[in-house]
Design a protein around this nucleic acid. Structure first.
Lengths: 189, 189, 189, 189
DNA sequence: AATGAATGAGGCTTCATTCAT
DNA sequence: AATGAATGAAGCCTCATTCAT
C-alpha cells in the first residue's frame, strides 16, 4: 500500500462502499489520500474510471474462482450448493465493500461498460442456475417443479442482503450463516 | 391527482425511485411538474422533506395492514407465512417504487428521522420474526434449530431482491412468485 | 441599465468582443458586473445562452433594417449599393462589438442554434447578392461578367475587416470610409 | 515528416487552424501525435511556444517571397497588383491554415512577441500600400484620390475573408478568384 | 399559493506547467 | 528524447436554499 495508485484504490473502495457512487466525490477521495483532485483524475481519467478500476481489480477473480467446483463432475448438486453458499458468504464477509459496490453501483456506468459489468453479474448468477438444474436432474425432490432462474435469484437475494445487515460477530460466524441458509433451502417441513 | 401537492408527491416518488435520493434534484422535480424550484421548497421545506413526505404517506399503512393476519389466533404459522409472502410480494409489484425508496434511501435521512424510519423497517421485519417463532413453536420441523431473526432476514432478502429484477409478465405473475418463494422455504429434499 | 439582466448583457457584449467566446469566462463576466457566477447561470442557463442572448437581442433588428431600401422599386442598384455601404459601415462603427461577435463566434454555437445563426449571416449576405444582380441587370457595365455571390463576399470581406482596424477618428469618419469603399468598387481605371 | 518535431508542427498547425489558439490544448496535440503532454512541452517550452514555432516556420518566407516583384523597377503598378492578388490568393489556398492562425491568433501572444508578429502583418500590408501608391503615381486614374492605407486594408479584407468561405472547387479555381478580385478593383462603371 | 432573484458550496473536468527520471 | 507524477488554477455547471414579493 505504498504507491499512490494502490492507496487510491483502497480509499476509493472504502469511500464508495460507504457513500455510494453518486455520494462519493473526487474531492473526498483526494483529501482522504492526501493528494489533489487533479491527481485523482490523473490516475483514473474520470469519476467513472474510478468505479471501473475497482470492478476490474476485483471481478475477474471472483467470477472464475468458483468455476472448478461448478465443473467438478464427481460432486453432486446439493454439495455444490453447499460449497457455493460458503464461497459466496465468505465473499460477503471478506469483500463486502466491493460486492456492495458491484451490486449497487454498476448501474451508474455508461455505454458499453454498463453492459459489460451488468453481464458479469448475470454470469455469476448463471452459476447458481446451473447448480439448481443439476440438483433437479439428480431428482431427490429438492427444488422440484421450481424455475431455476427464479430460485437462483431467491438464493442470491437471501445471501446478498447480508451485505447490509451482517456484522462479524462471535455469536454468528459467516460459516454459521452459510449453514443457516443451506438449512433454509434444503430442509422443509 | 389534481392539486399541486399530490402531483408533486407522485412525481417525487417516480423520480426518487429511478434516480435515488442523491440523484434526484429539486430542479428535476420542479420541471417534471412544471412549477418552479421555489414552489417545491414551499411545499416541503427542504429536500429531506420530500423524502419524509413520501415515507409518511406510505409507511404507516403498509406496516399496519398485515397486523390483523399476524394477530389472528386461529391461523397457524405456516399459513401466516404463506399470507405474508403474498402480502409482501403484492407490495413489491404495486408499490415497488416506494418500497425501493424506503429500503435504499432512508439512510440519507438525518437526525431523529433516520432513527424513526430505520426503526420502522425493523418493526416490519419483526413481524416475520414472530411468524417464524410461531412456526417453530408449532413444531412440525420447519425452521427447527434456526435463529428466527436470521431466517426473517433471509426471507426478506429473497423477497426484496425482486424489486430489482421482477418485471410483471404473463409467464410469471406475482402470485406465482410468492408461491415459488413459499415452496423454496417450506419444501426440503 | 439598472437591472441585472441589462447590466449582464452590456458587460457580456464588451467581454466577448474583447476576449472572444472561448476566452470569455462566466467568472469574468460575473465579477465585471459584481455578482456571483451562479447568478449569471441563473439568467442565461449556460455559457452558450449568453452568446445566444447577445445575438437574439441584436440580430433580428439589423437584418430587417435594410430591407426597405432593398425592396424599393424606384431605386437603382448603384444607389442601393451606396446606401448599403453606408448602412453597413454605420453598423460597424455603432455595433462593432456585436458584429464582431456575430461574425467570429457564431461557430461556437451548437446544434440547431449554430445552423440558425449561421443562416442569418447567409441571409444578410444574400441582400448584397441581390444588389449586385440588380446592378448587372441594369447594364451600365459595373460588375459585368462577375459572379454575384463572390462579389458580395468580396464586398463584405472588405467592409467587415474594418471591425478590426477602424478607429473612430476626426481624420476618417465612417461616412468617409463608406465613400472610399464605394469609390473602390465603382470607379475603375 | 518523420521526426517528432515535424510531426508536432504539422499537427499543431492543423489543430490550431481548426480550434483556434484558446481552443487548442497541449493534451489534444499530444494525443494527435501519439506522445505525452510532457514531450510536447519538452519541444516547445510552453503553449505560446507552439504558436511561435508555427509563425517562425512560416512567416519569414511568405513576407519575403513577394519582395522581388515589388522591387521590380520595370513593372507597372497595376501589373504588380495583379501579381500580388495571384500571389496572395495562392497563399490563401495553399497555406490557409497558417494564414488563418496568423491573422486570428497573433493577438494571444504576449510581451514582445505580440509586438513583433503584429508588426509583421503591418509589413505585409505595407507592400500593398506601396503598390497602390505606385498606381496612383502612374496616374491612369485608378484609385485616384483614395487613401493608400485604407485601400490596402480594403483589398486585404476582401482577400482574407476567402480563408473562411473559399472551398477548392472545379467551378472556381483560386486563379479565377484572383481575377475576380482584380476585376472588381480595376474595372469601374 | 407561487415565484424570481440571488447565492455559496461543491462537483467533475481541463489545462498548462513543473519536476524528477 | 521522452515521460509519468503531481498540481493549482480555472472553467462550466448543479444544487439546495434563502429572501422578498
Amino acid at each position: 500500500m505504498e504507491n499512490t495508485y494502490d492507496k487510491l484504490i483502497t480509499a476509493a473502495i472504502e469511500l464508495m462502499n460507504i457513500e455510494g457512487y453518486p455520494g462519493a466525490s473526487i474531492g473526498m477521495l483526494a483529501s482522504k489520500v492526501g493528494i489533489s483532485k487533479s491527481t485523482v483524475i490523473h490516475y483514473f481519467k474520470s469519476k467513472e474510471g474510478i468505479l471501473l478500476a475497482i470492478l476490474e481489480n476485483f471481478l475477474p477473480g471472483y467470477i472464475d474462482a468458483f468455476k472448478p467446483v461448478l465443473k467438478d463432475p464427481d460432486m453432486d448438486g446439493v454439495e455444490k450448493l453447499h460449497k457455493f453458499l460458503h464461497f459466496h458468504m465468505k465473499l460477503v464477509v471478506e469483500r463486502r465493500d466491493v460486492l456492495t459496490i458491484n451490486l449497487r453501483d454498476t448501474k451508474y456506468l455508461t455505454g458499453k461498460n454498463k453492459v459489460i459489468y451488468q453481464n458479469q453479474q448475470r454470469l455469476y448468477e448463471e452459476q447458481v442456475v446451473k447448480i439448481i438444474e443439476q440438483i433437479q436432474k439428480e431428482g431427490h425432490g429438492l427444488f422440484r417443479g421450481l424455475k431455476p432462474s427464479i430460485t437462483a435469484k431467491a438464493i442470491l437475494g437471501m445471501c446478498n442482503y447480508a451485505t447490509i445487515w451482517y456484522k462479524e460477530d462471535d455469536r454468528l460466524s459467516i460459516e454459521d450463516l452459510a449453514e443457516h441458509f443451506f438449512a433454509i433451502l434444503t430442509r422443509g417441513k
